[in-house]
């Protein structure tokens, strides 16, 4: 498929990783935390891209999985200490998988604009479930006073209170998610997913169970998002309904489109760019949101292939067909009935 991203040279990956590993030893604690947050949001954008970029399914409820992951940690953290990662993380991911399975099984029966609407409706339902009921502190949200612990033989192996440790956990999670998605996209499963995106009718007539393929991708993507949410909640020690609202869902979608749907790392770059842009504008302007909007519009007009296109402009020898934006799925009606 055309969206098979060109594998960046091993040197580039090594350089980025080296900088990432060295970073927490160089910059101040504030930026270490900022980078951790950005990596988790990057992981969220990366997970959404599996569905949007490779599946051709524009989902507007992705924050729900992120938020659910966070709320699960809040539910499972005791009053007097940290939750056990051994128990809380798998439980949280299982619950998120179940939620994604139900939402996916219902919404994937629709197509195109209807899929967008149905996922939006599900996202809103979950938002109001947490916002308007008392199950999790309503609109005030919930505090998580203790970080989850990874206890082996009475010792906590992972001190998530340490910003530096947390940073490396976030880095490992992001890298793991990137490897997982890369593996999936290049596998026969990934090819079937892309085939269904490019031409659903043809994929079916070749014998692919399109619904099951999409549902699997939807759940995998949801679980990665849930994992990011779980650790995000842990980082901030707080969950609120905004974490699963459509506003965040839309923001992640912007990150994906901004970074470029054609690659695995593109959405991560998009997430970094958007969060970084916010950070810079916030400190410089009063009406920074207005300027942020203008910058995004300008970027979309100037770089229709996403930020990734910037790399191909700067390094023309790496130009490849995969930099073109994903085109919407064409559902062709049966001709001449």
């Amino acid at each position: 498929m055309k969206r098979l991203s060109k594998i960046p040279s091993a040197g580039l990956i090594a350089a980025v990783l080296a900088v990432a590993v060295a970073l927490p030893f160089v910059v101040s604690g504030y930026y270490v935390q900022f980078a951790s947050k950005a990596m988790l949001v990057g992981m969220l954008a990366l997970s959404l891209n599996l569905v949007v970029g490779y599946g051709g399914l524009v989902s507007l409820c992705h924050a729900a999985f992120f938020g659910f992951g966070g709320y699960m940690l809040a539910f499972m953290t005791p009053e007097d200490g940290g939750a056990s990662l051994w128990l809380s993380l798998p439980t949280a991911l299982l619950v998120v998988a179940a939620v994604a399975l139900v939402i996916g099984a219902l919404s994937l029966r629709t197509r195109g604009i209807y899929f967008i609407m149905v996922t939006l409706a599900f996202g809103e339902m979950l938002f109001y479930l947490f916002h308007d009921t008392k199950i999790a502190g309503g609109s005030d949200g919930m505090y998580i006073y203790f970080k989850p612990e990874l206890v082996v033989g009475g010792r906590n192996l992972l001190d998530l209170e340490s910003a530096r440790t947390f940073y490396f956990v976030a880095l490992a999670l992001l890298a793991g998610a990137a490897v997982l998605v890369k593996e999936l996209v290049g596998s026969p499963f990934g090819r079937a997913l892309a085939a269904a995106r490019d031409n659903e009718r043809r994929a079916l007539s070749l014998g692919f169970p399109v619904f099951r393929v999409r549902l699997t991708a939807f759940v995998v993507s949801g679980v990665i998002a849930g994992m990011a949410g779980f650790f995000s909640a842990s980082q901030f020690g707080f969950v609120a309904p905004q974490m699963l609202g459509w506003h965040l869902s839309a923001t992640i979608l912007v990150m994906v489109v901004l970074g470029g749907m054609g690659s695995i790392i593109g959405p991560v770059v998009g997430a970094f760019a958007l969060i970084g842009l916010e950070e810079v504008l916030k400190t410089s302007f009063e009406h920074w949101k207005l300027i942020k909007g203008l910058v995004i519009i300008a970027l979309v007009f100037l770089l229709p292939g996403g930020l990734r296109q910037l790399a191909t402009l700067l390094m023309p020898e790496r130009v490849d067909a995969s930099a073109t934006p994903a085109k919407p799925r064409s559902d062709e009606a049966p001709a001449n009935v």
Partner: peptide
């Protein structure tokens, strides 16, 4: 009704994949 952006071989390989032993394997290229 073909996958216009893929090569001839990839189009046909995909069709063959659908009828292979593990059409939806998730690991390995």
């Amino acid at each position: 009704t073909i996958f216009r952006d893929s090569t001839v071989f990839e189009n046909v390989r995909l069709a063959a994949q659908a009828h292979g032993g593990s059409p939806l394997r998730m690991v390995g290229t």
